[in-house]
């Protein structure tokens, strides 16, 4: 699963992602992409599940890219522990996704294959998404 090799600080504030994506909203590598229409935290597990679904359907043909990276640590307090006594221990990592962010890209497969692969990947994600194609794409 994706996670940073090292981090400057162990724990991060929650923060609220505001506005819409001002970067990472255009296709940069492939002809097809999966764009988020909502804001959310996508966990490393969800990203991995989506990646597996995507590459399995593409049958290792073509190439795919993950455009987001889970670099925000999320903490959790142990079960049956009273409130207080400080912030919990880091539990997992998430990627902060704003509306408009492209999460996955694909290339080297047909439009139909890419569409179905992205649909399967989207089912593993906690947001509504849309399938996008490069404006100058020719089948």
């Amino acid at each position: 699963m994706l996670q940073p090799k090292k981090s400057k600080f162990r724990k991060a504030h929650k923060m609220k992602p505001k506005g819409i994506a001002s970067r990472g909203h255009q296709l940069a590598f492939g002809s097809f992409g999966l764009k988020s229409l909502e804001r959310c935290w996508v966990t490393q597990r969800q990203l991995e599940a989506a990646r597996v679904a995507l590459t399995r359907f593409m049958k290792r043909e073509g190439q795919s890219w993950i455009r987001v990276f889970p670099d925000k640590p999320i903490t959790k307090k142990p079960l049956e522990v009273r409130m207080g006594k400080g912030k919990g221990a880091p539990e997992y990592w998430v990627a902060v996704v704003k509306p408009g962010t492209i999460m996955f890209e694909a290339e080297g497969v047909t439009l139909e294959v890419a569409k179905e692969a992205m649909r399967l990947a989207a089912q593993k994600l906690p947001v509504t998404t849309k399938f996008i194609i490069r404006p100058d794409y020719v089948a």
Partner: peptide
């Protein structure tokens, strides 16, 4: 150059 809306394209 052409700019597109981040969500609606």
């Amino acid at each position: 150059d052409a700019q597109f809306h981040p969500i609606h394209d």
